[in-house]
Amino acid sequence: MTDKDPARTPAAAPHTPEDFPFTVSGTLVERMGMELLEVGAQRTSARMPVEGNTQPYGLLHGGASAALAETVGSIAAALHAGPDRISVGVDLNATHHRAVREGWVTGVATPLSLGRSVASYEIVVTDDQDRRVCTARLTCALRDKPPGA
């Protein structure tokens, strides 16, 4: 695809969760209480409650932060890939900066590199006071949709 392909331009990308072309019903997104706030290849965001996503000490589970990061990064990569392609996470790393015991956390994915076969995103997870909780990087392979998908 070229840079002038409408499927790749920010104006053509969905900007509200209602425009998102995939369902989240019955997925980890739903189970963890994630709410999509904004969707697009250039920026995707979602929030998640801390309650129900904690480890035994009552702190937000690091795996929950990673799941939020992979969710927003994968959605952004899928939108970059276009309607006839899929994104598959191949590498995720996360650094946890601070503990959170209550409220919500918000993850925002922005691109680091958008190519034809690979997309990489930085995801910043913040708490209700806009303090950085986690910084993650996700790399997704972009592939043609399998038959029947």
Rank of each mutant, 00 (worst) to 15 (best):
P6H: 08
A76E: 04
T23K: 10
D130C: 12
A99L: 03
V39F: 01
P49Q: 01
A94I: 12
S120N: 03
G63Y: 09
F22G: 02
C134S: 12
R116P: 04
A77L: 03
S87A: 15
A7Q: 14
V108R: 07
L138I: 13
Q129H: 13
E51Y: 07
V124T: 13
D91K: 13
R143M: 14
T9S: 13
S120P: 01
D5N: 15
V72Y: 10
A109V: 08
S74I: 02
L112V: 15
D19M: 05
L142G: 07
Q42E: 12
S74H: 01
G58A: 04
S74N: 13
D144E: 11
V108D: 02
A119G: 08
M32D: 04
L28W: 12
R47V: 01
A81E: 00
D130K: 07
V72C: 12
A7L: 03
R43F: 03
H97C: 07
A94W: 02
A99D: 08
R132S: 08
M34L: 09
T135C: 00
C134P: 02
A66L: 07
V29T: 15
T2P: 02
T71I: 03
A94P: 00
V39N: 05
L37E: 15
S87V: 02
C140A: 15
A77M: 09
T110R: 14
T23A: 13
T2E: 13
T135S: 11
A136M: 03
L59K: 05
R116Q: 14
D91T: 11
A46F: 06
T54C: 14
A67S: 15
P6D: 06
A81F: 10
M32L: 15
T2A: 12
H97T: 05
A13N: 10
V90K: 14
W104Q: 10
R131H: 14
E18W: 06
V39R: 05
P21D: 00
T106I: 06
V124R: 13
R137N: 04
V72D: 07
S87C: 14
V90A: 10
P83F: 06
G26S: 05
G103M: 10
Q129A: 15
V100W: 09
H61F: 14
I123D: 00
P21V: 09
R101I: 05
A67Q: 00
S25E: 15
A141T: 05
A149W: 14
G82H: 03
C134I: 05
G103K: 11
E102T: 07
Y121N: 06
F20Y: 15
V88T: 15
